[in-house]
């Protein structure tokens, strides 16, 4: 028989960095879950995405056990990251206008495909480019789509 669910908790936590502080502590602790166990599991499963914001959906059961699924980092977070000049750039402050290339949009779209409501890579790329526009980020170069 399926276990009875007592609640669903939606969080975004940095990969490899869950700790019992808020919001993890109060959200899970109030449901009687062993927070330390959640942190150990979450950190072991996200250790390759250290520092990146990872959406996680936690299902808590009546018996105080839990399981969780991880999503890919939000498009907006990935776009902001992509606009940063690589460390060691000779003139890091020269170009202040935020811009990403279509290659970067494609990379984010590929990463987000499993979570986006998109059937093709092209439509996923359009969604990512749309978010970029809403953020005031320019997509540079020629798009892969016919005008």
């Amino acid at each position: 028989m399926a276990k009875e669910v007592s609640g669903i908790i939606k969080l975004q936590i940095k990969g490899g960095a869950a700790n019992p502080s808020p919001p993890v502590g109060p959200a899970l602790g109030a449901k009687g879950v062993n927070i330390m166990e959640f942190c150990k599991q979450f950190n072991a499963r996200t250790q390759d995405k250290g520092g990146k914001l990872i959406p996680v959906i936690i299902t808590v059961y009546k018996d105080k056990s839990f399981d969780f699924i991880l999503k890919t980092p939000p498009v907006a977070v990935q776009l902001l990251e992509a606009t940063k000049l690589p460390k060691g750039s000779p003139e890091p402050n020269r170009n202040k206008v935020a811009a990403v290339s279509w290659d970067q949009v494609k990379k984010i779209a590929e990463d987000k495909m499993p979570d986006l409501n998109a059937f093709t890579l092209e439509s996923a790329m359009r969604m990512v480019a749309g978010t970029a526009r809403s953020m005031g980020i320019t997509v540079t170069g020629d798009g892969p789509f016919k005008r």
Partner: peptide, 30 residues
């Protein structure tokens, strides 16, 4: 939706390290 995601990204740049979605339209940053 997308607006919440964009605000989250901006707050994350300001040092906010985690977020909790309470219900639709309401979330908290820590």
């Amino acid at each position: 939706g997308e607006d919440a995601e964009i605000l989250t990204a901006g707050m994350s740049e300001l040092g906010f390290e985690s977020f909790l979605e309470e219900t639709a339209g309401i979330f908290s940053a820590y």
